[in-house]
């Protein structure tokens, strides 16, 4: 039994992001699984709009950080400024103090600035000038990165990529969807006209509901078999870590919830597998790196259901 509020949310987003039902659903699953989302794609395919719409329909406040190569951690976290009237320093929170943070072109910034955000993602709190401040709840980072072969990028190291629960690609829309986009109203106005479907408290409840989706022993066997295959097969440089397996299960649970089920099926695992493994597994064959779906399909077809 699908939850009507989740269906409504998906419908709202799909009205604005046209022809991208699957990435939209994945990004929602990522949010329900309390994870951060990485979108790697070319500029102009709707990454920012997706982040904006998500924040809007979920009733969350939204900030955007445009990463540049001369960016400093204080630009993200905030800074203390001397207030002449009171004669004291006052902390001015940075853009990271927001429920949905869009970190645009994160790989344009230097590692120092990247790590300021990545630390906040992991700890869900910020320490600036000796004081620890909690970030809002829920806290959801959508980072976008340009394909790493582009000029002026600082690729994120594997350990930091691991902080993102899912990595998705939007890709070009198909011609029909693109035509509708071109002919339709201004997306920015459409976003502004959206009303929140749920409150942030309800979102926290839904996240808890996703955590409680049942993963049977047979399903856990399947996740283990997948991980074991990546660890032994020569196709990958290194296998999936236990943390990656946990991520896979978490997203699969959220995916099952979106599908209106209280138990995870192998189909859920297979559906979210490309997004979970694409930034975690590095194929030994470099040419295979480009087609994420094909790599995931090869993995799925190599591992029988236990």
């Amino acid at each position: 039994m699908r939850l009507p509020e989740l269906e409504a949310i998906q419908a709202d987003i799909n009205r604005i992001i046209l022809g991208k039902e699957r990435p939209v659903c994945l990004s929602l699953a990522c949010l329900l699984a309390c994870g951060h989302l990485l979108i790697e794609d070319l500029p102009g395919v709707g990454k920012t709009t997706l982040a904006h719409v998500l924040a809007r329909v979920l009733g969350l406040n939204f900030q955007r950080i445009q990463f540049t190569s001369d960016m400093l951690p204080a630009d993200i976290l905030g800074v203390s400024i001397f207030d002449r009237d009171s004669g004291a320093f006052h902390f001015h929170p940075g853009p990271v103090f927001s429920q949905v943070v869009l970190a645009d072109e994160i790989n344009r910034a230097t590692p120092k600035a990247q790590s300021a955000l990545l630390e906040a993602m992991e700890e869900r709190q910020v320490t600036a000038e000796g004081k620890t401040r909690a970030l809002p709840e829920p806290f959801f980072v959508i980072a976008t990165q340009n394909p790493t072969h582009q000029i002026g990028t600082f690729p994120l190291p594997e350990s930091q990529l691991d902080r993102f629960l899912l990595k998705i690609e939007l890709g070009y829309p198909d011609p029909a969807a693109e035509r509708e986009l071109l002919a339709g109203a201004d997306r920015r106005q459409m976003v502004a006209s959206l009303t929140p479907r749920i409150t942030s408290q309800r979102l926290v409840q839904l996240q808890e509901l996703a955590r409680q989706v049942h993963a049977s022993p047979a399903l856990i066997d399947y996740v283990q078999a997948l991980a074991a295959h990546t660890r032994t097969a020569a196709r990958w440089q290194a296998g999936l870590s236990p943390r990656a397996c946990l991520a896979l299960l978490a997203v699969a649970r959220a995916w099952a919830l979106l599908d209106g089920r209280h138990h995870v099926l192998p189909e859920d695992v297979q559906a979210v597998l490309p997004g979970v493994i694409s930034h975690r597994l590095r194929p030994t064959d470099d040419t295979a790196r480009t087609d994420v779906e094909a790599v995931a399909a090869a993995l799925i077809e190599a591992v029988p259901l236990p």
Partner: peptide
């Protein structure tokens, strides 16, 4: 197919 989920 041995890898295929039941609903699929």
């Amino acid at each position: 197919q041995v890898w295929e989920g039941p609903l699929a």
